[in-house]
Simulated assay, not measured.
Amino acid sequence: MSAKVPVHPLAGINEGQAALRREVRDGFAAVSARLDVLAGKVETRHAEILELLSQLGTKNPGAS
C-alpha cells in the first residue's frame, strides 16, 4: 500500500495564481504584438503623408 502525499491547503491557490500569471503574461504579449503592428502602420501612414505634403509643397501654384 502506498502512502498518500500530504497536500498543502494552499497548493490549489498557488496553482491558480501561476495559471493566472501565465494568462496575464500571454495577454500582455498579444497586446504588445498588436501595438507593434499598429505602430508600424502609423509610421507608414506618417511617411506617406509627409511625402504627399512634400509633393504638394514643390508644385508651382501658377502652373495649374
Rank of each mutant, 00 (worst) to 15 (best):
S2Y: 13
A3D: 13
A3M: 10
A3P: 01
A3E: 15
K4R: 14
P6F: 07
P6C: 04
V7F: 05
P9T: 02
A11H: 01
A11T: 01
I13T: 06
A18C: 07
A18W: 08
A19F: 07
R21Y: 08
R22W: 00
R22K: 10
R22N: 08
E23T: 01
V24L: 13
F28W: 13
A29V: 10
V31E: 04
V31P: 01
V31Y: 03
S32I: 05
A33Q: 15
A33M: 12
R34M: 13
R34H: 12
R34G: 14
L35Y: 01
L35N: 01
D36H: 09
L38K: 03
L38G: 01
L38P: 00
A39G: 13
A39W: 05
A39N: 14
G40Y: 01
T44N: 05
T44W: 02
H46M: 06
A47C: 00
E48M: 06
E48W: 06
I49E: 13
I49G: 03
L50M: 06
E51V: 10
E51L: 13
G57W: 05
K59W: 11
K59P: 07
N60L: 08
N60V: 10
N60P: 00
G62L: 14
G62E: 15
A63H: 09
A63W: 10
S64M: 08
